[in-house]
C-alpha cells in the first residue's frame, strides 16, 4: 500500500477550499456578469440581438477570476502540505502522486460544475433573460466539446504550475520561485524572438487544438518538475 490515496485525502481534507471556494468565485463572477448585462440593458442594449449576444459572449470574467485562485491552490497544495505529509509518513514519491491525483480530481470537479451550469444556461435560454455567463467565447461558446477540455486542461495547468512553484519554495526558499519565474520569462521572450517573424503565418494556420497540446506539455513539464524538485527535498 502506498501513501498516494492518503495524500489525496490529505488535500481533500480541507473540503471548503477545494470544493466550495471555486463555487463562491464562480457565483461572484456570475453575479457581476448579470449586473454588467443589466448595465448594458439600461444603456439601450437589446437582449437577444446580434450585438447583445456578440458583446455578452466576449465576457472574460471567468478567465480573469479563477486562475489566481487556482495557482494559489496549487502553490499551497505543496508549500504548506508537503512538510505535514512527510510528518504523517508519506514518501516524496507518494506525495507527488497523491498531489497530482488531487489536482485531477479538482480539475474534473470544476469541469463538471462548469458543464452543468452551461447546460442549464443553454436549456433556460440563458437564464430566461439573455444573460451570457457560461456560454461565452473563452469557455467554448456553449460547445461542450470545447468547454470540457478548456476547463479541465486549464485548471490542471494552473494547479500544476502552482505546484511546481510551491515545490521550488520548499526546496530553495524564496529564491526558488524567483528562479523559475525569471527562467520562464527568459524562455518565453526567447521563443517570441525566434517565432515573431513567422507570427502572421502561425496565426493564419492556428488551430484550437494547439492550445490543448500546449496545456498538456505544461502539465507534463510541471508534474515532472515538481517530482524532480521534491524527490530530494528535506524539511527543516
Amino acid at each position: 500500500m502506498t501513501a498516494i490515496m492518503p495524500t489525496t485525502r490529505l488535500h481533500l481534507n480541507k473540503r471548503e477550499i477545494t470544493f466550495l471556494v471555486p463555487l463562491y468565485i464562480t457565483g461572484t463572477v456570475a453575479l457581476i456578469s448579470v449586473l454588467i448585462s443589466l448595465l448594458f440593458l439600461r444603456s439601450g442594449g437589446v437582449p437577444g440581438s446580434a450585438d447583445w449576444i456578440a458583446g455578452s459572449q466576449l465576457n472574460p470574467g471567468m478567465a480573469y477570476a479563477l486562475p489566481g485562485f487556482l495557482v494559489y491552490l496549487g502553490v499551497q497544495s505543496v508549500a504548506t502540505t508537503f512538510p505535514f505529509a512527510l510528518t504523517l509518513g508519506s514518501t516524496r514519491r507518494s506525495f507527488v502522486g497523491g498531489t497530482l491525483l488531487w489536482a485531477v480530481i479538482a480539475s474534473a470537479y470544476l469541469t463538471a460544475i462548469m458543464t452543468v451550469l452551461t447546460l442549464i444556461e443553454l436549456a433556460t435560454d440563458h437564464w430566461f433573460s439573455n444573460f451570457y455567463i457560461f456560454d461565452i467565447a473563452v469557455l467554448g461558446a456553449g460547445d461542450l466539446t470545447r468547454l470540457i477540455p478548456i476547463v479541465f486542461l486549464s485548471t490542471l495547468s494552473m494547479l500544476t504550475i502552482g505546484g511546481v512553484f510551491g515545490a521550488s519554495w520548499i526546496r530553495f526558499g524564496g529564491r526558488g520561485p524567483q528562479f523559475i519565474g525569471v527562467g520562464l520569462a527568459i524562455v518565453i521572450i526567447v521563443a517570441l524572438i525566434v517565432i515573431l517573424p513567422a507570427a502572421p503565418t502561425i496565426i493564419a494556420a492556428f488551430q484550437v487544438w494547439w492550445l490543448a497540446v500546449l496545456a498538456a506539455v505544461v502539465i507534463l513539464l510541471s508534474s515532472i518538475g515538481m517530482w524532480l524538485i521534491l524527490r530530494t527535498a528535506i524539511v527543516r
Partner: peptide
C-alpha cells in the same frame, strides 16, 4: 511518527483536520 517542534501545518488547518487525516496514514 515524528512531529517537529516547529511543525508546519497546511493553511487554515484546525484540530479536526488533523484528527480526521492522521488515521489515514497511521
Amino acid at each position: 511518527i515524528y512531529v517537529r517542534d516547529n511543525q508546519r501545518y497546511p493553511d487554515d488547518y484546525r484540530l479536526h483536520h488533523v484528527l480526521r487525516i492522521a488515521p489515514a496514514f497511521a
